[in-house]
Design a protein around this nucleic acid. Sequence first.
DNA 1: GTTAATACCTGTTCGC
DNA 2: TGCGAACAGGTATTAA
Length: 259
Amino acid sequence: MDGRVLAHAEARRPDLRWPLPTDFARRLQGRRVVGLRRRAKYILIDLDDAQSWLIHLGMSGRMLLSDGAEPAREPHDHVIVRTDDGCWVRFNDARRFGSMDLWPTGDVENHRLLSGIGPEPLGNAFSGASLSDALAGKRTPIKAALLDQRVVAGLGNIYVSEALFRSRISPKRMAMNVWGARADRLCAAIKAVLADAIVAGGSSLRDHRQVSGELGYFQHAFQVYDREGENCAHKGCPGSVQRIVQAGRSTFYCPKCQR
DNA sequence: GTTAATACCTGTTCGC
DNA sequence: TGCGAACAGGTATTAA
């Protein structure tokens, strides 16, 4: 999309998770894309009027790209954009947990949804030491702490379970008790899980898809998530995967080797 | 101030 | 076969 003009924009409903900004489609229309970035779970599309288009895919949201004739309208196609070179971009989100906003590019770090968010897990600023600092004094299970975007950006329920399994840390362990070598292991596991997932094209559960509409493949590489009752994947461990509920979300782990 | 629970939404799956 | 209940997810809001 970089460099292309948003020749036409249409919002087919006034809200997603929250109301779309005033005159949303009109403000997109005619703008040239001058940058494409990501911060945490947000896609940031910088426009030539010094505004940035913030997009969160929520859980079921997806951006679908196609060339040529206008694609048939499908249920839950909430925002539709056509670029000046004939590309169609559709934001489709059945559950409407996604959101969009327009915000000054120079102030985007201060947007209410982005301010206070933690370091990028794949960046150099995220280390065992920085993770220890973020967890210090937190009297909540490490599972819940890792879902807190202020601690580290971009981790969701699945990747937290996988990272805790790889680092052999119990999801029930108090966050403040994850430091030193444990924090180093956890940091490395988070980076490894995300790197593996990116290579595999992401995780596809039910209707999660890539821009082409294809499913990702990382779900086939899950070691604990949605594997309740299966043998622990750690070599030599006699344990089996258990499912518990923490903060209203499923956690999968091996009680034998995750401590 | 910190942590836990709840609401939002809809397609899919499961049990009766 | 058909129906309703439960479930999945991220995050703001409300409650404790």
